[in-house]
Design a binder for these strands. Sequence first.
DNA 1: AATGAATGAGATTTCATTCAT
DNA 2: TATGAATGAAATCTCATTCAT
Lengths: 190, 190, 190, 190
Amino acid sequence: MRTKDGEKQRALFEATIRVVNELGFASSSVSKIAKSAGISPSTLYIYHKNKEDLLVSTYVEVKREMGAAMAGCFDESLPVRDILRKVWFVLLQCACARPDHYRYAEQFSNSPYLELVDQEELERHFRPLLEVVQRGIERKIIKDVGRPLLKAFLFHPIPFLANAWLREGRPMTEAEMETSFTMAWDAIRL
Amino acid sequence: MRTKDGEKQRALFEATIRVVNELGFASSSVSKIAKSAGISPSTLYIYHKNKEDLLVSTYVEVKREMGAAMAGCFDESLPVRDILRKVWFVLLQCACARPDHYRYAEQFSNSPYLELVDQEELERHFRPLLEVVQRGIERKIIKDVGRPLLKAFLFHPIPFLANAWLREGRPMTEAEMETSFTMAWDAIRL
Amino acid sequence: MRTKDGEKQRALFEATIRVVNELGFASSSVSKIAKSAGISPSTLYIYHKNKEDLLVSTYVEVKREMGAAMAGCFDESLPVRDILRKVWFVLLQCACARPDHYRYAEQFSNSPYLELVDQEELERHFRPLLEVVQRGIERKIIKDVGRPLLKAFLFHPIPFLANAWLREGRPMTEAEMETSFTMAWDAIRL
Amino acid sequence: MRTKDGEKQRALFEATIRVVNELGFASSSVSKIAKSAGISPSTLYIYHKNKEDLLVSTYVEVKREMGAAMAGCFDESLPVRDILRKVWFVLLQCACARPDHYRYAEQFSNSPYLELVDQEELERHFRPLLEVVQRGIERKIIKDVGRPLLKAFLFHPIPFLANAWLREGRPMTEAEMETSFTMAWDAIRL
DNA sequence: AATGAATGAGATTTCATTCAT
DNA sequence: TATGAATGAAATCTCATTCAT
C-alpha cells in the first residue's frame, strides 16, 4: 500500500496559487492546476474532494501561514505600537517575498468563494494580534472605532501595497516600510 | 457589433454585475449573463465583441460612474481637507447605495483582467482628485509619500468598508462616515 | 433564426433505443447516442435537459406508440374476448416488428429509472383497454383478482414472447400467436 | 484472483445486488460496490477478474440459490399439478423474502450481460422442474406448446408479481398465492 | 436588430484497473 | 491477503461563439 505523498500535496498547493495568479479564477481549470503540479487530474481528487475544496483549502493554508509568520515575531513584552510595527514589517516582508500567496488570498477574498470559509476559524490564527489591538484600545492608545474600521486601515492596505511594489518591479525599501506603517498607525492611534 | 438599443445595453451592464457578484468570475458565463439581462446570448454579441469586451467595458463603465459621482460634488473653492472629505462621503454613499458595482470593481481589479484596461484612461476620471491631492502635498498639508501609499489609505479602504457594512446588514451612520474619513485623513495628513 | 429539427428529434429517439439495446444501460453514453444519431453531443442538450431526460422521454414515447398501436385496432362493438384477442395480436406484431422498442421498454422498466416516470400518465394511454377488462370482470367473464395479477398474465408475457422468438431468429406464426393468446385468456377468464 | 475469505465473498455478493438495485447498472461502479461491501476496490480484484465477472457470477449465484430453493421442496411422488404448485409457492415466497435478488436477476436478464452466461448451465439447476413439465405434457395434462410459451406463463410472472406486491408494501396472502398459481395453471393446463 | 439552433473545445469528475507496500 | 495511491480513458455537461433566418 502506498502512502499519501506530502510532496504532491505541497506541489498542488503551489500550483493552485501559480495558476490562479496567472489566469485568474475564470480560466483556472483543475486540469491546468494538476498539470502544473505534475500530477494527473484524477490524482488531484485523492487529495481534494472537488475543485471548490482545492481552492478553499489553498486559501485557508495561505492564511494559516500568514498567521504563523505573524505569531513567530510576536513579543508581548513590547509596547503596543512596537508590536504592531513588528507585525506590519513581517507581514509586508512576507507579502513581498511571496506576493503570489497574497495575491491569491486577495483574489479569493474578493470572490464569492469566501462565503465557503469559516471566518471564525480563520480569525483564530490572528487572535493574539486582535488582543493587542484590544489592549491598545483599553489603554486609550488606539481609537475605539470597531473592528472593521481598524482592519481597513491596519491590515487591508498590506497586500495592496505589496502588489503595488510588485508591479513596480522593485522591493520596498526599509524607509518605505517605515513610512507606510506610520500612516497606518496615524490612522488608528488616538 | 452594431450598437442600438440603450435599454438593452443597460440591462446587460446590470446583469453582468449581478451575475458576477453572485457567481464569481469562475462561474459567470455569457449565457447566464444574457439570460439575466433578458436577451439572447447571440444578441449580446451585437453589443460586445466577446466575453472579455463585456467584462472589461462593464468595469470601465463602473469606474466612469464613480468618477462622475465624484466630479459632481467637486468644489475647488474649498480647502483641501474639505474637498477630500466631501469626496469621501460621496464615494462611501455610492459604495453603500450600489455595493454590487463596487464589489464588481473589486473582483475585477483583483483579477488578471485588469491588465486589459488602459490605466491611464481610467485615471483621467479621477484627475481633478489627484490634482487636489497634489496641491495638498505642495502646501505641506499631505505627506509626500508617492501615489500608491496615498491610494492605499485614501481610496482603497472605501469598498472594503462598504462591504463590511453591507455584511452587517445596516447602513453606515453619518458619525461612522465621519470617523472613517478622520482615520483616512490622519493617515495621509502631515 | 433556425427552427428545431423534427428529424433530429426522431434520429435521437431511434439512436437511444439502438445504442441501449446494443450496449445496455451500463455502457450507453450520451456521446455514443449522439454519434449514432449523427449529431454533436452538445446538440443533444438542446433537445434534452440531461441524460436522464433523454432516457425517460424515450421510454415514454415508446409507451405512447404502443398505446397508439393498440388504440388503432380498438373495436368497442366486439365481445370482450375478441377485443382482447385483437389487441394481443397487434401488440405481439408490434413487439415482433420493432423488437428493439420493446426490449428498450423492458430494460427501462426493470431499472431504477422507472421511478422517474409518472405511472398515472402512462396508464392513460391504455385506459380503454383497462375499461374493457373491467367490463369483463363485471360480466363475470374475467376473474376478479385485481389489476397486478391480470397484468402479469395478460400483458407481461408479450415482450417476453417477442424476445424469445427474436432470439430464435424467425417470426411468430399465426398459429403460435393464437396459442399464446389462448393461454393468456385461459389464465384470466372465469 | 486468489480466493480466500468466504465472508468477504458473501459481502460482495450482497453488496453487488444492493447497489445495482439501488442505482441500476448504469450507475453502479466497482468502487461503490466495494465500499458497500466494506472492502477496498483493489481487494475486489482478488475475488473477481473484473467488473463483468463480478456481475455475471452474482447473477449465476442468484440463479443457483433459486434452483436450490426449488430443489429443496421437490417431492417427485406427488401429482404434476401439486409439484408445480409447491414450486410456485416456494419461488413466490423466495421472491418476496429476497426481492432484491429477484430484481437483480430481472435487471440482469434484460440486459446484454445475459449473453455472457452459459444458458445450458443455468438450466441445469431447473432440470427436475423441466422434467416434471415434460411428464405433464406426455400425460396430456399440460399443453404441448414449446418451452418459451410455458416459461412465459409459468415462471416469468413470478418476479413481476413479487415486485408488484413489494411496491404495495405488504406481503402476498396465502389466498393471493393460490389465486396466482391457479391462473398460471389455467394458462398451461390442457 | 434579434434570436434559437448548432457545435468543437474544454470543463469537472468518475471509472475500471494496476501499482507498490 | 489486503489496500490506499495512482492514472489514462472516458463520462456528463457547459462554454463561447457562429449560423441561418
